[in-house]
């Protein structure tokens, strides 16, 4: 029997899709190669040439040299990103539960508010926030940025979790009510455990965004010892001459946590992305 013929559409699709994948991967490879080579060699031969010396000097330099201090930025970013993920997750899930299960006055108005906040640019908030944090003594403090990220994240997480909660069967919660559980108990012991997939999705996205944030940090953190990783990486660039070895090493370090998170939680990650955009968990 003759083998089934490969349809041209299949061949073309594979070729095109993999070409796109190759082009899309290329900058990462370039960045990685540049970061592991002495910069003079990269300039002379190009990073695509595999021959020559390899080194981790760039990484050590950006991490340890106080001028760059990426280790400090890394630490600050973690200090900001972890609470800024967990706090809004709980607060927004609570609000989302109210939207999904209770009827109350101003329900639609508050829901519109959440949708509007999701669309508003960060630029619209920073001027009054700058003076508010100054008055509270939280300017140039990580806690100030944590509060802002947490509040900012509530809107989209509440939107996302509300949509998830409305899809949960309400009988299980009703059973718990009849069994004598209070609403806080039902929320903490029944609803949240049933929502772990959605919570993981929201957490993955929120962490990535807080980690990636640059604008809030740029406005609210200015002492070198308080800067987060995105600020530190941009600072490596310098004014005139760019040392691509150092800059690429810094860039790679800055993307390691979100990439690790993505690798670990890929399914939830994509789900969160779709949920954020379309509202469907």
């Amino acid at each position: 029997m003759p083998r089934p013929r490969l349809r041209p559409a299949v061949v073309v699709s594979n070729l095109l899709a993999w070409s796109v994948a190759a082009v899309w991967l290329l900058p990462f490879i370039g960045l990685f190669m540049t970061s592991t080579r002495p910069f003079e060699e990269v300039v002379i031969r190009g990073w695509w040439s595999p021959w020559g010396n390899y080194t981790i000097r760039n990484y050590i330099e950006v991490l340890a040299n106080p001028q760059y201090d990426l280790a400090g930025g890394f630490r600050n970013s973690l200090i900001v990103a972890i609470p800024s993920t967990l706090a809004p997750l709980l607060v927004a899930a609570m609000a989302a539960y109210a939207f999904a299960r209770f009827s109350f006055v101003m329900r639609n108005l508050l829901f519109v508010l959440i949708l509007v906040v999701m669309a508003i640019p960060q630029q619209t908030m920073v001027i009054p926030l700058f003076f508010l944090l100054k008055d509270l003594g939280l300017l140039d403090k990580l806690l100030g940025v944590i509060l802002i990220h947490s509040s900012w994240g509530i809107a989209w997480i509440a939107f996302f979790m509300r949509n998830y909660f409305t899809m949960l069967p309400s009988e299980v919660e009703e059973a718990a009510r009849v069994d004598g559980a209070s609403y806080p108990t039902i929320f903490l012991r029944i609803v949240l455990p049933m929502s772990i997939p959605a919570l993981a999705a929201a957490a993955a996205i929120q962490f990535t965004w807080v980690w990636a944030d640059f604008f809030f940090a740029l406005i609210f953190l200015y002492s070198p010892e308080n800067m987060v990783i995105t600020q530190k990486v941009v600072a490596i660039k310098g004014q005139y001459q760019i040392d691509w070895g150092l800059l690429s090493a810094g860039s790679i370090l800055a993307m390691i946590p979100p990439i690790l998170l993505y690798a670990a939680l890929q399914k939830y990650y994509l789900r969160g992305m779709v949920g954020w955009a379309t509202g469907k968990g």
Binding site: P88, M94, F102, S103, V117, L129, S150, S151, F187
Partner: peptide
């Protein structure tokens, strides 16, 4: 039911009010 709902909403409304709506 209103009291219960606003109990669940309170922390979110507080944070959103101070750090998002007010600014």
């Amino acid at each position: 039911e209103n009291l219960r709902a606003y109990g669940f909403l309170a922390p979110a409304l507080l944070l959103l009010g101070v750090f998002v709506v007010y600014p």
